[in-house]
């Protein structure tokens, strides 16, 4: 969360209580979303998402490794997030913070629960499966990493090409088919400030929010939820936000479906 002055924080909350958001947006508007794919040809897949001033880069590498002991017939999906020190004055170098761990795990859960990647198709032979390494790099923080991260991971997966495994080696040349993608997931993150709820909070808004709710869905189902921070939601609020998510996610899905891959 960005550190802002107390005056600015009070100003944001005061405005919201009058039904106005700091900036041109309405409560349930997303900022401008720009997605570019394939920026890093060395990676099997890559994408960058700009959500307002939040800038997130995802690189995907594939490797051959051993399956998890409890899932011998499935490939591995590993999602990691780095809150880079260059992304915000409030980020420090060092071991992963609870915030970055939560961020990576929430993105991971949505994609895993929706079966976006058919992990059983990544089985090669006994004790040998493909591992997909998804690394989320936050380059500039201005709030709502969860939605930007999920969008960027989806865009990068849609851009990912499968290497071949030949004679005990990974071959990244010649014909490389696209990674097969099942259902597309997106997440919608809401911030609660006082009794007001807004979507896609900026860094300044996040610094004064009381609670956060992220809902990840595909076209049919809610796939993941994560409530965060010390504030609370009533059941009625959650019910409304679930409904809202199925409406707003159409906008996000449209952006992803418009990508060339």
């Amino acid at each position: 969360m960005a550190k802002i002055s107390a005056v600015k924080g009070e100003y944001i909350v005061e405005l919201l209580s009058k039904g106005i958001r700091d900036g041109p947006r309405k409560f349930m508007d997303y900022r401008k979303i720009t997605i570019s794919q394939g920026l890093l040809p060395n990676a099997e897949g890559s994408a960058q998402v700009d959500l307002g001033n939040t800038k997130v880069l995802v690189g995907i590498k594939m490797g051959v490794g051993e399956p998890m002991p409890d899932k011998p017939k499935e490939g591995n999906l590993m999602v990691n997030a780095e809150l880079l020190p260059l992304a915000s004055a409030d980020y420090d170098a060092g071991p992963p913070s609870p915030e970055s761990v939560e961020f990576a795990r929430v993105v991971d859960r949505g994609i895993r629960a929706a079966g976006t990647i058919d992990l059983s198709s990544l089985f090669i032979e006994k004790d040998k499966v493909w591992s997909i390494f998804v690394d989320i790099y936050v380059l500039n923080y201005d709030g709502n990493l969860f939605d930007a991260g999920t969008l960027a991971v989806m865009a990068a997966l849609l851009n990912t090409k499968m290497p071949r495994y030949e004679n005990d080696a990974v071959v990244r040349e010649g014909e490389m088919p696209k990674l097969k993608i099942g259902s597309i997931v997106t997440s919608c993150t809401y911030a609660k400030l006082g009794d007001k709820i807004i979507i896609d909070p900026t860094g300044a808004e996040e610094s004064v929010m009381d609670a956060r709710l992220t809902v990840t869905n595909d076209e049919q189902y809610i796939r993941a939820m994560q409530k965060g921070l010390n504030g609370a939601f009533s059941y009625a609020e959650i019910e409304n936000l679930l409904e809202k998510t199925f409406e707003k996610s159409k906008e996000l899905r449209k952006v992803l479906e418009g990508l060339k891959g």
């Binding site: 859960r109 949505g110 895993r112 629960a113 929706a114 709710l213 049919q220 189902y221 809610i222 796939r223 993941a224 939820m225 994560q226 409530k227 609370a232 939601f233 009533s234 059941y235 959650i238 019910e239 679930l242 409904e243 199925f246």
Partner: peptide, 14 residues
Amino acid sequence: GNVLLLQMDGSLTK
């Protein structure tokens, strides 16, 4: 009756 923790993964309708 406030919800203080909520997590979910899988598939679920409203």
